[in-house]
Nucleic acid binder design. Structure first.
Lengths: 333, 333
DNA sequence: TTTATTTACGAAACCGTTTTCGCAAAAGAG
DNA sequence: CTCTTTTGCGAAAACGGTTTCGTAAATAAA
């Protein structure tokens, strides 16, 4: 900037003001400086700028994993609005691990980011790290996976209703013993989905509510063998609802291996945004979350607070409904 | 930091040195300062730090899109090493658009990042923006999708061989007229895969090399209708190799719609890391890239230059082989 | 005991911006 | 033609660290 200043015979203050597009500077000098800048291809140093403004123009996105198609789509939504605002997006992966998530969140509190979007890990058992972040005046928005009972803005889907819907759908189609595969009993998303699921079981007086929610929170191999055992047990279910995408794939793989016919012996509904759902064998009935919109809306909400248009977003809850796509995996045949 | 200094009765210089773990500072004061820091929960301001060191501890990852499972896995690999090094990861999406890619790359040249990992957009028709980046002394590594004829480090897979392998596999299994669905004639990855594909056609004296490479570079809908037309034409292929994941899904969807039997009427091989390949209808023969390792290796290479362990990585090429998983979609029946 | 060296720390300059404040010159008002 | 206001710009002080260099005290060497 100093070089540019001497090149143009002005002060650094003037150059800075040109880049801020200040009204104090005449058209003529603005033009002169900008031309010289592009000639020397000079651009503002973002960190010096951040230091001065206390604005990083960066947000953090904390995800449990990125292999799930849901999160890929959500990232797209997030990116689309961040970019429009001229913001940069830092990605962090918690790998479903609470300790890891805490250390990531801690990294976000020293001014590195202006806001945080987070979908909590399945192993997260406390919201203290999030509260601490808010205490440091960093806006936070949960998207999809919230941690309950916190005064934090959230963009989620209608999990309870969808849990209910999934169970009701299976029961309507003849299931006598449907089960729900959860990944965590702490996770808001799983709790609500399973609660809705159980409510349907009770309403329809079907199945065994006491044992109908099964937790799969191991490695992929552990989950697979757990599912295998489940499908070979004497009280094996005739219907499964999976709470996340990867469990749906596991169930399919196990069924192919054990020759369990879907939907003949087992009907399935999956919470999933899998693009390949219609071309699976058999086509998979899915409850699909509006992943892109969840990401987009959460980011818009975050910016409301970052830009102080709306000072307190903390208690705002936005619910974007999911929808059931009925396919062969859950049909009567 | 100033507050912390007075709290501990030392100078800011000393505090700074404590955090740098300088040998100049005694065990005792280090302990004192660190304790006070955690009590006041103080952490170093990253941007002030970056400004002074000219190190951002951040790398950029530029991707065409994130919906493709390949990139999700690659991000995991990238993140795994960046995290170990204490680096942060900025994600940018080019949406396959060249102009967009250029503006993203430009953003990376003002010190915001210490290095760039890029998988180029399919519409990228020049490498000037990349060269410019290198001129600014920002290390760059291509991963998976390179732009050819540039002196830039790259981590890629054995595309030519795999293209050859795919065609040979189809021909061996009885295809008389296999085609290759490309997304761009400029993209190194597609060029090599299609060249390998064509070489096999010539070697085996099969098919119509002049018309065997078809470019699908439109929207999803445009690609779908192009594929539909292809499968309804009188010279319709009896084998398809798709260069990217999304085209494989498109072909399957179209085949389901048109009732084209796979592998009866059409055999398929896809370049893809789709986790659902074995449970598709029919199971899909894939050539799977070691996505995680490509990301990981590329990042390691990048850090070699960032940390100046190896001054010039520019011409290094690392090839990680892909492997063919034969499934029903390409079998003789 | 004197001199040389090591240890532990502080003062101050600097990294590249932004912003306040002051001040001329130009323009407008009376 | 004087007086006020506006316009256009520069000097300098931050922002929060890092680093060089200097120095006093403690230790070692002679």
């Amino acid at each position: 900037m100093k070089e540019l200043a001497v090149e143009c015979n002005v002060s650094v203050a003037t150059v800075s003001k040109v880049f801020m597009d200040s009204y104090e500077i005449s058209k003529a000098t603005k033009k002169k400086v900008l031309e010289a800048a592009s000639r020397l291809n000079y651009t503002i140093n973002p960190y010096a700028s951040s230091l001065k403004n206390k604005r990083s123009k960066t947000i953090a996105v904390i995800l449990p994993e990125v292999a799930d198609n849901f999160f890929s789509l959500a990232i797209n939504g997030i990116q689309s609005v961040a970019e429009k605002k001229g913001y940069h997006v830092l990605i962090y992966l918690s790998h479903e691990n609470f300790i890891h998530e805490k250390s990531i969140v801690a990294e976000c509190s020293n001014g590195r980011v202006d806001g945080v979007l987070i979908s909590v890990a399945s192993e997260t058992i406390s919201g203290d790290h999030i509260v601490k972040l808010q205490d440091e005046n960093i806006p936070v928005v949960f998207f999809d996976r919230e941690f309950e009972n916190l005064s934090v803005a959230k963009v989620i889907t209608n999990d309870y209703e969808c849990g209910y819907l999934a169970a009701a759908h299976l029961i309507k189609n003849g299931c006598k013993n449907p089960v729900f595969l959860s990944i965590s009993s702490c996770l808001g998303i799983c709790k609500k989905r399973s609660e809705g699921f159980l409510a349907a079981l009770k309403d329809k007086k079907t199945g065994h509510p006491e044992t109908a929610v099964i937790e799969c929170n191991g490695t992929k191999e552990e989950d697979n063998s757990q599912i295998k055992k489940l499908l070979q047990s004497k009280n094996r279910p005739d219907g499964i609802v999976t709470s996340v995408e990867r469990l749906a794939i596991s169930v399919y793989l196990v069924c192919h291996e054990l020759n369990v016919s879907i939907p003949g012996a087992l009907k399935m509904v999956a919470f999933s945004t899998l693009e390949t759902a219609p071309i699976l064998n058999p086509p998979l009935t899915t409850i699909v979350q509006p992943a892109f919109d969840i990401g987009k809306t959460a980011t818009e909400l975050l910016f409301k607070e970052i830009e102080k248009k709306e000072c307190k977003i903390a208690d705002q809850i936005i619910i974007l409904p999911s929808s059931l796509f009925e396919r062969k995996s859950s049909q009567i045949r």
